[in-house]
Design a protein around this nucleic acid. Structure first.
Length: 219
DNA sequence: ATCCCGAGGG
DNA sequence: CCCTCTGGAT
């Protein structure tokens, strides 16, 4: 795909999505970190319902540790994978206190060393909390990248590297949220709304019988 | 490659 | 019913 077409796609997305930021509710970087950990394979809507109650009671590493495993689970039961997530969140909180004075670190290495934090979550924190031009490739970006051919690849890492190397500089920071919101509301996994899509005419996927784009399992 | 796992949508 | 949702750890 040539650079003009790429730029045109991002310009249209930016026009259609005036506020490209996360829909997770948070008031501190710590809250954002916990919300993003909980958001794995879950809808942000469901995460917000849980964290609204959780953060009201506990929104510091020590306060969450004080809840204990079953206490924390009681707040996040309605989210999928709750047992594994509760364990990870507790360990993550302990790590924050032991290694970072209770603060959220701002480097990829330190973030990925935290329990429950992998490359995708680290990319979200670096972008959303610290303003770094990272692109977190989740199920939405993987699908949208491959469908539009903005960034193709068999693995999320491949797709991330293509996005990073080809996205127009002025859209590097907002690309992640522009693409995720486009994927969530228009370029949906099932029954994509091509009829109301602002980039149909620029998209390879529209009106073609292509294989469904499924995200790879694991890494 | 497999497990974790609830809720909402179609 | 089946699919999907801002994945990560083993």
């Amino acid at each position: 795909m040539n650079a003009q077409k790429r730029l045109a796609i991002f310009e249209r997305l930016a026009k259609a999505i005036p506020n490209p930021t996360t829909e997770l509710e948070y008031t501190t970087t710590f809250e954002l970190l916990i919300a993003v950990i909980l958001s794995a394979q879950a809808t942000d809507k469901g995460v917000n319902i849980a964290t609204r109650k959780l953060f009201k009671v506990a929104n510091t590493p020590q306060a969450i540790l004080d809840l204990g495993l079953e206490g924390l689970e009681s707040y996040i039961k309605t989210i999928g994978l709750y047992h594994a997530k509760a364990q990870n969140v507790l360990k993550c909180c302990a790590q924050l206190l032991a290694l970072h004075g209770g603060e959220v670190p701002d480097t990829r290495e330190a973030l990925e060393a935290l329990a429950g934090v992998g490359r995708k979550t680290a990319n979200v924190i670096l972008n959303t909390a610290f303003g770094h031009p990272t692109i977190a490739v989740d199920t939405h970006l993987f699908r949208v990248g491959n469908r539009t051919k903005l960034a193709t690849g068999k693995t999320v890492l491949e797709v991330e590297q293509r996005f990073l190397s080809t996205t127009p500089k002025q859209y590097l920071h907002d690309a992640h949220h522009l693409l995720i919101l486009h994927g969530r509301y228009t370029c949906t996994a099932r029954n994509p709304k091509c009829g109301e899509c602002c980039i149909v005419d620029l998209c390879e996927f529209h009106d073609k019988q292509l294989q469904p784009v499924k995200p790879p399992a694991g890494n």
